[in-house]
Design a protein around this nucleic acid. Structure first.
Lengths: 195, 195, 195, 195
DNA sequence: CATGAATGAGTGTTCATTCAT
DNA sequence: AATGAATGAACACTCATTCAT
């Protein structure tokens, strides 16, 4: 019982990984079930054993990655050490890690959702809100400790997220900047926004 | 000759306008030649008299909008009055206008380009560079006048562009903020980055 | 204008004829768009130029045949000469003609309709009612003239229709009975029911 | 041996019952192996231990129901009490019961058989003949006792069967007529045919 | 110039069937 | 005896593209 369930879960994850890859290379419309399956040496028919729909599969991809990122951020937010600014820097590092390492994957964050049904949309929006909320929390904490101040907190957060999401459009680890330098510079600018 | 050429040009522009509308509504993958033609009371077959491809048509849309935006920015940059900060504010206003009004067509900036052939990609990348360059110019001007200073100018510009491009992911003119307020707040934060 | 419309109509009818043939040979579920198209040396894609759906196409088939039959029956009912019994006999002849000559075609009458959408179902049920109603009319007329009498008119009509629809399950023109004999014998029995 | 054979038989019957249910609800084309199995808390793969094919399974359903009906009719025919007319009425009741309760499975009688292979078709046709023959017998008996008379016995029987089979196209137990009234009225009319 | 008509490659989805365990 | 998993053939439907008229 437990065994077969684990197997199922592992397979689902494999498929998700493959789907994430393909979806983010081609966009979710051009990503075909065939290609997603092919990468795993399966036939597209088999995918339907694990996922109800293409829509469902894509949705799970989104959810999967986002959940992971949320978990990482939460850990830092709760157990991270140092000043609020230092914790913020760690969060920026996490976001940039996802955006750069899992490039295609994380890109999902900013894609539209004409494919999701209402139920799914709700869940996605919730996850996104959760994600944004983590940055809201750190900002609020900074304000409370007197480290930060903002004119309009929502917009400040949007600016920060936008700036970070844009990274994957241009940054290459092979380029002029190391990831560490990138994180540092970004944090620097972000702190300017919050001060 | 000249006459028929002008007619052709006018027709092409009509088609582009229609295509832009549809693309902005449905995204370029779901935008069908049929719908683009229908809006003009034509049949899709006719489109092929003016454009080689759907790919070509979409590309021209992108180019059209981007050129427009570049022109607008250039005008402000050259003839705009006021301090560098004030000119920057006008540029932010222009960008936000395009991002909000021309949603998906403008959005193409940040989307992959599995649709464009190499020739087209080069042209698009050039346009993008031109676009970015205009923001580089205003930053440089600010530094020369002593109004701005940056730790890393490229990254500063990336942060600014990223922040602005993100707007279309969340901003609705029907929401809490008017476009004017949005522009003002954004400029405010952007200036913080540059000071 | 008028010309192309006529062409369209003619083509639609051709497709309907083909569809009727295939549908009634294989049943509407096993009838494929491909096969329907193949018979006309078309590709299945083309069918969608004329019909929105498989469901739509099948529906039009049903409607097409049923309308024809209704028209024929109405003609006899209104302009037929002779006693009510004699007119009934002509109606029986028409029904049997459809059932035997257009065997597969007419069979549609008795097939379920899990395929039709609500709008279509309404129309189909209406047509069926119209068809049944024609037999109701002749029965009523017979009762008024004193030629017929019934215990339960609805059931009488159902028995008559059922008996006639069953013919295509067993009758072959190549068999023992000519169509004329068949009609005569059937009418004979039907009159027994109505007397 | 004997024991496991009995187990096998019992299981087969369980499956048939489930299949019959599903087929009656969805029609045999839309009835899926999955659904048939699910009702029994099995997986569809297991069905293939008991039945070679879906075709085979469906065929056995048909056979099962038809055999049952034949048995019931035979019982009445041999041991039924009362006049020939009264026995006929009981047979009509049986037929109507099957037609109404076992809708689609029983309906198979009058559907084409693109699903059955030649071997199966022969068996089905034989069963049908057996079924029809039982009605022939009662008619013949009526003629011998002087209760009935017919112009053409085969056609008379066809009319009676057709009328009865049609019932499932329109009758609903929830409607105006109870099943008892239906039986009585039908018998009444059928007797008119036979007199 | 424009269109009506046709095409064909592609795509998601379903489902009977198989088979190792 | 049963199952989990995979397969592959089939099918409806879409749409960019073509071309004779």
């Amino acid at each position: 019982m437990k065994l077969s369930e684990k197997k199922m879960k592992r397979k689902k994850e494999q498929i998700l990984r493959s789907a994430i890859k393909v979806v983010n290379n081609k966009g979710y419309v051009k990503a075909t079930m065939e290609e997603i399956a092919a990468e795993l040496l399966m036939t597209k028919g088999s995918l339907y054993y694990y996922f109800k729909n293409k829509s469902d599969l894509i949705f799970q991809c989104h959810r999967f990655i986002l959940s992971d990122a949320v978990k990482d951020l939460e850990t830092v937010l709760k157990h991270g050490e140092g000043s609020t600014s230092e914790i913020l820097q760690q969060m920026v590092a996490i976001h940039i890690d996802y955006a750069v390492d899992e490039k295609d994957t994380f890109n999902l964050i900013m894609e539209p959702k004409n494919l999701f049904n209402n139920e799914q949309i709700d869940l996605v929006l919730n996850l996104r809100k959760q994600y944004e909320n983590l940055f809201d929390q750190i900002i609020k904490r900074g304000i409370e400790t007197g480290e930060f101040k903002t004119r309009d907190q929502t917009i400040a957060r949007m600016i920060i997220l936008g700036a970070m999401n844009w990274i994957q459009q241009w940054y290459s680890p092979a380029g002029r900047l190391s990831k560490e330098e990138l994180v540092e510079t970004y944090t620097d600018y972000i702190l300017k926004i919050l001060k």
